[in-house]
């Protein structure tokens, strides 16, 4: 068992998206590995940008729900 500091934490490294055979492949840490159509990738990208903007305005560790 590792120390509590080794528990899963939010990823600080960005995922890497690449275009392959007409679709978008997204790789990242913590087992992130997915494939999306171009449209789904574009909408996911916008959703990530929107969520990132909201996350920057939140206090770390707080739950505003």
């Amino acid at each position: 068992m590792k120390s509590p500091s080794a528990e899963l934490q939010p990823e600080t490294e960005p995922g890497i998206a690449t275009a392959e055979q007409g679709v978008v492949v997204l790789d990242g840490q913590d087992g992130l590995a997915t494939t999306m159509t171009a449209d789904a990738a574009a909408r996911t990208g916008q959703s990530l940008i929107d969520a990132a903007a909201i996350a920057r305005s939140q206090k770390p560790g707080s739950n505003d729900d």
Binding site: T18, E20, V23, A33, T35
Partner: peptide
């Protein structure tokens, strides 16, 4: 591996 064939190909 829980991947698409495109991903595996890459």
């Amino acid at each position: 591996c829980g991947l698409t064939t495109v991903h595996v190909n890459r």
